[in-house]
């Protein structure tokens, strides 16, 4: 199953997005990598790295980010992986993206399919 890592400056945002997605896709492999080790605001490369490792089953991992250092820290975490071939940061809204990708991944879709859904999520109309 494709794994999902949610990277936010806020631990609560990351955990909240995961909580919401789990409601629709309880079996999805999602890791919340928000905030610093002490729970403070920020992004932490080692926390993101651990998140990727935790959800990588070999089918790939998509990373959702909020902004700024979330992107840079995720890039660094990917660079530290032994195999980064199917790990990708996707430019998508973090909450919607987490839900959409969790549902897509949990029905057994491929990495490319999950990426495609996430990319489309950016222009998804709410009303």
């Amino acid at each position: 199953m494709v794994g999902i890592v949610v990277v936010s400056h806020s631990q609560k945002i990351a955990e909240g997005a995961v909580e919401l997605a789990k409601q629709m896709a309880p079996e999805a492999r999602i890791a919340a990598a928000g905030g610093m080790e002490d729970g403070g605001i920020g992004t932490d490369v080692s926390k993101i790295f651990a998140g990727i490792e935790a959800v990588q089953e070999g089918d790939g991992v998509v990373i959702l980010v909020d902004l700024g250092s979330a992107v840079m820290s995720s890039e660094m975490a990917i660079e530290m992986l032994e195999d980064d071939s199917n790990v990708k940061i996707i430019d998508a809204p973090i909450v919607e993206g987490t839900i959409f990708s969790s549902v897509e991944a949990s029905i057994g879709s491929s990495f490319d399919e999950v990426v495609e859904v996430l990319t489309g999520c950016k222009t998804y109309k709410k009303f």
């Binding site: 610093m36 080790e37 490369v45 250092s69 890039e75």
Partner: peptide
């Protein structure tokens, strides 16, 4: 440990 963009 920095947390913001200055960390990376």
């Amino acid at each position: 440990t920095v947390g913001g963009a200055s960390g990376p």
